[in-house]
């Protein structure tokens, strides 16, 4: 019988009919509920002001602000690290002579993540996520993740000499932190050599 036939008589709705209707509709409804996206997270989260990070990095002393110009050689190496053009032609950093602090921006997926790195004797002493602007992946701010960068040095090929464990669902943000950590170590090495 075709679904819209006029040749059928009206009938009662039985319990089994309702049960079968439920069986038919429940699976797609459940799938739809799982597939629906949740609300997007806040656009920008400032966890630590850059000035506060610098103050924490140099307790009791006044760090000097210096400039590192992105020369053609530095530019080429930075492109190698980042995989794209650096955002600006000179980089500010803070130093007390022994260690240096770098505040860098890098896009995870769509928006810039601002992170701070303190470098001493060629290794990362401290890493912090300062401002996070992506909609997801903010777990990279947790101490358990950023603590992995402590002690990391620059190895051959401008890569880190230690393994950094990723975070599920935050791969692009983790990769951005990895790129910034390599950039900070490279900049610190270059600035120290000048």
């Amino acid at each position: 019988m075709p679904p819209f036939s006029h040749d059928e008589s009206p009938g009662m709705i039985s319990l089994s009919t309702i049960r079968s209707l439920y069986r038919m509709l429940a699976p797609p409804a459940a799938c739809l509920a799982v597939a629906l996206p949740g609300p997007a997270a806040a656009a920008e989260q400032a966890y630590l002001e850059p000035s506060a990070f610098i103050a924490q990095a140099f307790p009791g002393t006044t760090a000097q602000v210096k400039l590192l110009w992105i020369t053609p050689k530095i530019h080429a190496e930075t492109v190698r690290i980042l995989g794209h053009e650096p955002a600006q032609l000179r980089q500010k950093y803070w130093t007390d002579g022994e260690k240096s602090a770098w505040i860098l921006d890098e896009i995870g997926k769509e928006d810039a993540i601002t992170a701070g790195f303190v470098v001493k004797d060629g290794h990362i002493e401290q890493a912090r996520v300062l401002i996070y602007r992506e909609s997801r992946g903010g777990e990279i701010r947790y101490p358990a993740f950023v603590a992995q960068f402590e002690g990391a040095k620059l190895a051959d090929g401008l890569y880190l000499d230690k393994q950094i464990d990723g975070i599920s669902g935050a791969t692009l943000s983790v990769n951005a932190m990895l790129r910034m950590s390599r950039e900070a170590l490279y900049f610190a090495r270059t600035a120290a050599a000048k």
Partner: peptide
């Protein structure tokens, strides 16, 4: 839904 229920009842 109405048409489905009617068809279902008729078929039963």
């Amino acid at each position: 839904v109405w048409i489905y229920l009617k068809n279902r009842g008729s078929r039963t």
